[in-house]
């Protein structure tokens, strides 16, 4: 009788093992394609500067995201000296069709985001013209005032969860960097 019990236990163990294999084999891949696309990827950063009919666009594009292809930088032309431009930033995820406008998400969560636009040309002054619900700047829209002719770089940084308000620098704001792109620009 007692022997019978231990045989039963052994049988039960074997049964459990086999059935679990079957269950798992059946359930394997029940969620089909696991290759979720990167939904929050930013592939494209555009900074459009307008002064009347003079429109200058700076575009960064990296369509495969973190993949191996190198990003491209497109600058439509030089900026005019001693001119005030109105600027607007657009962020897109072009891996989706139609392309997803990430700028809207940033605007909705304005209190958790802030752009920092800086240039190596010291004459250039950028002023953020939009504000979040607490009255702190976001930087989707801005004005950019050029000085004398020069060449240099312009860097756009988007911080997620920075300290707001802050000292106006990306270092001082902390948070994590969602965007950091640098363009070579010319003022003439």
């Amino acid at each position: 009788m007692k022997n019978l019990q231990s045989i039963k236990t052994i049988k039960l163990l074997a049964l459990l093992f086999i059935s679990s294999l079957t269950i798992v084999s059946c359930s394997s891949d029940d969620d089909g394609d696991d290759h979720d696309h990167e939904e929050e990827l930013i592939t494209t950063v555009t900074y459009e500067l307008t002064n009347g009919t003079d429109i200058v666009t700076l575009e960064f594009q990296d369509v495969d995201g973190d993949g191996s292809a190198l990003p491209t930088y497109t600058i439509s032309g030089p900026l005019m000296a001693n001119t005030i431009y109105t600027g607007e930033i657009e962020l897109l995820n072009e891996t989706e069709d139609p392309a997803e406008d990430i700028t809207e998400e940033v605007e909705e969560e304005g209190d958790e985001h802030e752009f920092f636009i800086t240039s190596s040309i010291s004459d250039i002054v950028v002023t953020k013209t939009d504000v979040d619900e607490d009255g702190n700047p976001i930087g989707i829209t801005s004005t950019l005032e050029t000085g004398d002719a020069a060449t240099g770089t312009l860097t756009i940084i988007l911080k997620h969860e920075p300290t707001k308000p802050n000292d106006g620098t990306s270092e001082g704001a902390g948070g994590s960097t969602d965007v950091e792109v640098t363009f070579d620009i010319e003022v003439q």
Partner: peptide, 23 residues
């Protein structure tokens, strides 16, 4: 010892899986 292991990258994360499905 007999062992079977299965990794399932649950979909819906909106990112590509760190570790793919494997058996």
């Amino acid at each position: 010892l007999l062992r079977f292991q299965q990794n399932d990258a649950i979909s819906g994360t909106g990112t590509s899986a760190l570790i793919p499905d494997y058996e």
